[in-house]
C-alpha cells in the first residue's frame, strides 16, 4: 500500500486500563495493581474510499479501537495518524435507542454537527440541509419535527446516519451499526451504507462481530483476539484462505444457511480473561496447531510470512 493512499494509520497502538482493586483492598489483601490491555500493539492502515472491518468476539478490543480512532480515548502507547480533516470524521453507534437524545426533535439532532462545525450557517440553510439529509437516508423531510420515540430501530439508525453525514464527512467509524436491528432492517441499513459510500466516496472503519455482515461490507478484514490483530487480509483472500487457526475456527462456527453443519464438533474452550492472558500466543490454549514455541513466545506479523498478514508460528512453518 502506498502510504499516501492511507487516510488513517495505527502504529503499535495500545490502550491499557487500570482495573486494580481500591487502594485499601490492595494494602490489606496485598494485591498488586492490575492492568487490562484492551488494545495491545495494533497496526493497520485504512485506504481512502475503502472499508476496513474489525471482527472478533466480545472483549477482543474492537470497540476500544473505535473509541481510540475517534479520540474518545487517549492511546496509552503507539499512535494514530489521521491524514484527513479531523472535522470530517464521524461515528455511528450500535444502539439507536441510546445514541439519540429523546428530548430533541429529529431536525435538531441532525443539525447539531453542522451547528457545531459551521456555526455561521443560517437557519434557512440548516433547514434545507436537514431536509436533504433526511431524503438521502430514505426518510421524509416532515420527520424533522418528530421525536426519536416515534421511529423504529431501523429508522433511528437512519437518523444516526443522517446526523453523521451532516458535517460532510470523509471518514466514518461504525461500531456494530446493525447489531441491534432485525435482519430485514439490517439489509436496508447495510444497503444504504454501501450506496452512501459509493455516492460520497466515504471511508469506513466497520466494527462487527458478525462475519457474514463483514463479508458483505468490507474490502479488508482484521481479525482480533485478546487485544491483538491475529490476521489481516483483503476480504476475498480471508474467506478463500484463512491463515490463522482462530479465523478458521470463527469461519467454521458460523451457522450456514446453505450448507448447515448439523453435526459440528464445536470448538472447545472460551476466550481467556484479558486481565491475565496466556503467555506466548494468547490463542494457544484453544489452538489445535499449538507447539512449544507458541507457549513461550508471542508471534507477530512478519512481512516475510504471508506478506505480514498473520501472526502465527504454525502459519510460519507452512510459509510459501
Amino acid at each position: 500500500m502506498n502510504r499516501t493512499d492511507a487516510i488513517l494509520e495505527a502504529v503499535a497502538l495500545e490502550r491499557r486500563f487500570d482495573v486494580s482493586a481500591p487502594w485499601l483492598n490492595r494494602v490489606i489483601e496485598r494485591k498488586p495493581r492490575q492492568t487490562l490491555r484492551a488494545v495491545d500493539g495494533v497496526d493497520f492502515q485504512i485506504r481512502r474510499g475503502q472499508t476496513l472491518a474489525i471482527v472478533g468476539e466480545s472483549g477482543c478490543g474492537k470497540s476500544t479501537i473505535a473509541k481510540l480512532v475517534t479520540g474518545l480515548y487517549e492511546p496509552s502507547g503507539g499512535a494514530i495518524q489521521f491524514h484527513g480533516d479531523p472535522n470530517r470524521m464521524q461515528m455511528i453507534f450500535q444502539d439507536p435507542y441510546a445514541s439519540l437524545n429523546p428530548r430533541w426533535r429529529v431536525g435538531r439532532i441532525i443539525a447539531e454537527p453542522l451547528r457545531t462545525l459551521r456555526p455561521e450557517t443560517s437557519a434557512v440553510d440548516l433547514g434545507a440541509r436537514v431536509d436533504e439529509l433526511l431524503r438521502t437516508v430514505g426518510l421524509s423531510p416532515s420527520d424533522a419535527s418528530k421525536y426519536p420515540h416515534a421511529f423504529s430501530g431501523g429508522q433511528r439508525q437512519r437518523i444516526s446516519i443522517a446526523r453523521a453525514l451532516a458535517g460532510d464527512p470523509e471518514f466514518l467509524v461504525c461500531d456494530e451499526p446493525t447489531s441491534a436491528l432485525d435482519v430485514s432492517v439490517q439489509a436496508q441499513v447495510l444497503n444504504l451504507m454501501k450506496q452512501l459510500q459509493r455516492d460520497f466516496g466515504l471511508t469506513y472503519l466497520f466494527i462487527s462481530h458478525d462475519l457474514s455482515v463483514v463479508r458483505h461490507m468490507a474490502d479488508e478484514i482484521a481479525v482480533m483476539y485478546l487485544g491483538r490483530i491475529v490476521e489481516i487480509q483483503p476480504k476475498a483472500d480471508l474467506f478463500e484462505r484463512p491463515l490463522h487457526p482462530y479465523t478458521r475456527m470463527l469461519l467454521e462456527t458460523i451457522p450456514d444457511l446453505k450448507v448447515p453443519n448439523r453435526d459440528r464438533k464445536p470448538m472447545g474452550g472460551e476466550v481467556p480473561s484479558p486481565i491475565a492472558p496466556p503467555k506466548g500466543c494468547s490463542f494457544h490454549p484453544r489452538c489445535p496447531l499449538a507447539f512449544d514455541r507458541c507457549m513461550s513466545e508471542r508471534p507477530v506479523r512478519n512481512a516475510d510470512v504471508h506478506q505480514g498478514r498473520v501472526a502465527c508460528f504454525a502459519a510460519e512453518e507452512t510459509r510459501k
Binding site: A187, K194, L257
Partner: peptide, 23 residues
C-alpha cells in the same frame, strides 16, 4: 423468501442485499 434474501451470505458476493420494503 425476503427474510432469507436479506441475510448476508457466506457464499458468493452480491452488490445489494435483498430488502423487504417497510417494516
Amino acid at each position: 423468501e425476503g427474510l432469507m434474501g436479506s441475510i448476508p451470505s457466506m457464499h458468493g458476493d452480491v452488490a445489494e442485499l435483498q430488502m423487504i420494503p417497510g417494516s
